[in-house]
């Protein structure tokens, strides 16, 4: 039997789904992304850009679809779902990792004793009513004793014994105790975190002070229980650096100096430089009469002024 006709017609009907590239395509099925690292074919790029872009995109997507269809599937009401593997591309997170909740006193006790956490359902079965009722809250099971119309009273009860009040008080005290314990847990965790913060700050200050010496703390006196700092190296600038960077660093120093001068001027607006206090010099030269008088004496003539001076 000759099947070549059938095969040929089949081939004509269905085009190829294979993609062949020099560098194999990098498919990240977890993010539905495909990366084609092959260099661009410049001829077809310059002749027809849109067609070229579409054909490369088609090839890439064909490879992605092929790997998506080879994934295991699970049924769902909307058709089969492909189960995706975790993505291989690493993208930065949007927010920092969630911090673990500090354990309560009970949780610490339970973990030490190996007590498993049991989830209590909110509804429990009421035998009398033959229905599910709330464990607590509206018409809760915990208010049963307060709501029932008849209560057994112990024989030695006082005259004014009120069973409803007793049950209610017991319930209220349980609620109060729970709240008190919750607040204690909160207070404990905040105190702990404060202490941790303070310890961290002390450690940081200690590290800074150690680094501040020329030997980077090598010859400092060690305290008891002081840990060795890790990852600390003296950093030397290279002896030869590009002229651009050298210029930059010099200019940075200069501008910083400039800034110092400006700041000094702002702080002492009418002082001169550090060596000569101009204000004081004028006062002594004019014998306390001020700069204007001194100026006037200068313009009147040198001889007179000198003769009038104190010998």
């Amino acid at each position: 039997m000759d099947v070549s006709n059938i095969l040929a017609s089949h081939a004509a009907k269905f085009q190829s789904i294979d993609v062949e590239k020099e560098t194999p395509l990098d498919v990240d099925t977890g993010f539905l992304t495909v990366t084609d690292l092959n260099p661009i074919d410049e001829d077809s790029y310059s002749t027809n850009l849109e067609e070229y872009l579409q054909s490369t995109a088609r090839d890439g997507i064909q490879a992605l679809i092929a790997s998506l269809y080879s994934l295991p599937t699970k049924p769902s009401p909307d058709g089969p779902l492909a189960v995706l593997p975790p993505p291989t591309t690493l993208l930065p997170r949007e927010k920092p990792l969630p911090k673990p909740k500090p354990p309560t006193k009970w949780e610490r006790f339970a973990s030490a004793k190996g007590i498993q956490k049991k989830v209590r359902e909110k509804k429990i079965w009421d035998e009398e009513k033959q229905e599910w009722v709330n464990r607590w809250g509206r018409d809760g099971k915990n208010k049963e004793k307060e709501d029932q119309w008849i209560t057994e009273v112990p024989a030695n009860a006082a005259v004014d014994f009120d069973p409803v009040k007793v049950a209610r008080d017991a319930r209220k005290s349980r609620v109060a105790q729970n709240e008190r314990q919750r607040l204690q847990n909160v207070a404990r965790t905040t105190a702990q975190s404060e202490r941790q913060d303070r310890n961290k700050e002390i450690d940081r200050t200690l590290a800074t002070t150690r680094l501040s010496t020329a030997s980077m703390g090598k010859f400092d006196k060690k305290l008891d229980g002081e840990k060795k700092l890790k990852g600390i190296k003296r950093k030397f600038e290279p002896t030869e650096i590009p002229i651009e960077r050298e210029k930059q660093s010099s200019l940075a120093i200069l501008s910083k100096l400039d800034g110092d001068v400006k700041r000094a001027k702002r702080e002492k607006p009418n002082g001169g430089d550090d060596v000569l206090n101009v204000r004081k010099a004028i006062r002594s030269a004019s014998r306390g009469r001020g700069a204007v008088a001194l100026g006037r004496a200068q313009t009147r003539g040198d001889g007179k002024g000198r003769r009038g001076g104190k010998r």
Binding site: G30, F31, L32, T33, P39, I40, E42, Y45, L53, T56, A57, G60, I61, I65, L68, Y69, T73, K74, S76, D78, G79, P80, L81, A82, V83, L84, P86, P87, T89, L91, P92, E94
Partner: peptide, 30 residues
């Protein structure tokens, strides 16, 4: 990385293959 984060950053465990409708293709000139 930016474009992937912009369009596709959500990590999902499964996808309906019939719902794959469009592609965003990013190419660079030679």
């Amino acid at each position: 990385s930016l474009l992937m984060d912009f369009f596709n950053a959500e990590v999902i465990d499964s996808i309906c293959l019939g719902g794959l409708e469009h592609i965003i293709s990013v190419s660079v000139a030679p």
